[in-house]
Computed example of a mutant assay.
Amino acid sequence: MSLARAGKLDDAMDLIDKMPFEANASIWGALLGAARIHKNIELGKRAAEMLFILEPEKSGTHVLLANIYASARSWGNVAKVRRLMKDNKVKKEPGMSWIEVKDKIYTFIVGNRSHSRSEEIYAKLEELGHLMTKAGYVPMIEIDLHAVGKREKELLLSYHSEKLAVAFALIATPPGTPIRVKKNLRICLDCHTAFKYICKIVSREIIIRDINRFHRFRDGSCSCGDYW
């Protein structure tokens, strides 16, 4: 919704309340995304509650709601979302990313090391990590819902499937060529932030097609305007 994207959340809710039909999951999903961007806890909670009814099997709603609470440092509510997922037996779908190189499709899963060039891929990720840190990047460990320590969270974030795919592309494709990756889930906030740094560091255009939209990273910014 354009109103929500522009930050006019009250106007967006007023429009929904006056619509002659019930809002669907796409509308509530757009509001949940807007609530995350604008850190509006109340709207995020309401949108999530509707999505729990409309799409109870989708784990993405829980993750986004937890991210909203985490951004407000409401750790008690983050814990409640985790318990809700556990009680309702909602499991987060594993992230998978695909990339085509020389007419062959390569698939990556978070933390996987079965690729024949895994050692090079992880070395490239470590190199990028150092360069991003120097440029000001800070891992967003608050968005990771695993019950592990800070360092473990940082490692889990750095090994997300889309980061593995991009690292592989950097060692397997010609310098300067665009990198195109497909992902089965919504790109996470940390990866989205990281790619804004990476595209500038390596001087390559990075295009991620996730479940919601295309993200074109170039010169330190994304075509989505940080809204997805």
Rank of each mutant, 00 (worst) to 15 (best):
28 W>I: 11
131 L>F: 03
151 R>K: 14
187 I>K: 05
48 A>P: 06
38 H>Q: 05
218 R>T: 10
77 N>A: 13
161 S>H: 04
103 D>T: 08
95 G>W: 02
20 P>E: 02
37 I>D: 00
46 R>P: 02
75 W>D: 11
203 S>K: 09
18 K>E: 13
23 A>Q: 12
182 K>M: 07
49 E>M: 05
9 L>A: 08
53 I>E: 14
1 M>P: 14
7 G>F: 01
206 I>H: 07
53 I>Q: 13
132 M>A: 07
146 H>W: 02
96 M>F: 14
114 S>C: 09
77 N>W: 07
126 E>P: 00
82 R>H: 09
167 A>Q: 01
98 W>Q: 11
37 I>K: 11
195 F>V: 06
83 R>H: 07
226 D>M: 08
158 S>L: 14
84 L>Y: 08
194 A>C: 12
59 S>F: 00
48 A>D: 10
19 M>W: 08
66 A>I: 07
43 L>T: 12
16 I>R: 14
102 K>P: 06
207 I>C: 11
61 T>Y: 01
27 I>W: 12
121 I>F: 04
148 V>G: 06
167 A>W: 00
194 A>T: 04
195 F>T: 04
150 K>T: 05
82 R>K: 15
176 G>Y: 08
165 A>N: 03
84 L>E: 12
71 S>M: 11
179 I>D: 00
105 I>Q: 05
51 L>C: 03
227 Y>I: 07
177 T>E: 04
39 K>N: 08
35 A>W: 00
59 S>V: 04
72 A>W: 05
73 R>Q: 12
19 M>V: 07
104 K>M: 06
160 H>C: 03
135 A>V: 03
218 R>G: 06
48 A>C: 04
135 A>K: 14
89 K>F: 12
163 K>V: 01
38 H>E: 00
158 S>P: 10
36 R>A: 10
139 P>S: 05
69 Y>G: 13
189 L>P: 03
107 T>Q: 10
177 T>H: 03
49 E>S: 12
189 L>W: 04
142 E>G: 08
30 A>S: 15
90 V>Q: 09
126 E>R: 13
124 K>N: 01
125 L>A: 04
127 E>R: 05
185 L>H: 03
10 D>W: 05
165 A>I: 00
11 D>N: 10
56 P>W: 00
175 P>Q: 03
27 I>Q: 15
97 S>L: 06
122 Y>E: 02
64 L>D: 07
219 D>G: 07
90 V>E: 02
147 A>C: 09
132 M>P: 10
133 T>V: 08
142 E>Y: 10
221 S>Q: 11
18 K>A: 10
166 V>S: 03
174 P>F: 06
27 I>H: 15
5 R>W: 03
130 H>Y: 04
166 V>Y: 00
24 N>V: 09
76 G>K: 14
90 V>T: 13
169 A>W: 02
72 A>K: 14
206 I>P: 11
80 K>W: 09
98 W>E: 13
222 C>L: 07
48 A>N: 04
76 G>C: 14
228 W>A: 07
180 R>P: 02
73 R>E: 13
2 S>I: 15
210 D>R: 13
63 V>N: 06
20 P>S: 03
35 A>F: 01
85 M>P: 09
104 K>S: 05
24 N>M: 15
130 H>G: 07
187 I>N: 00
102 K>W: 02
195 F>G: 05
22 E>I: 15
95 G>D: 06
